[in-house]
Amino acid sequence: MSNQSANEVASYAGPMKVIAFSTAGLILAFGLCGLDAHLYPHSEFGGSSLAGLGALLFVGAGLGLIVGCLWAIGKFIAGMFSKATPKDQ
């Protein structure tokens, strides 16, 4: 791989960290809500503090995942432009 493309990939480390940690948060959130659903199968909005905590984590981790993905897409688009510029000149 050339130095240029290696540098492009290098810039993805930040968003990938966000995506990785957010996904770990989502896995944990599924565990919290799943446990609550297992304990209180007939409770529509959750039967314990587990559901509330899980819902909070869902929202936080979900937002993190969206931010990480948008950041990565932004980096990708920025990389395309920076690659295109020298050719245009």
């Binding site: 290098a10 480390a13 960290k17 995506i19 996904t23």
Partner: peptide, 18 residues
Amino acid sequence: LPEDRRWILIAATAVGAL
């Protein structure tokens, strides 16, 4: 692996694990 690639693989691991 360099830092950047390692984190791409960690992110892939996390999504695949989910």
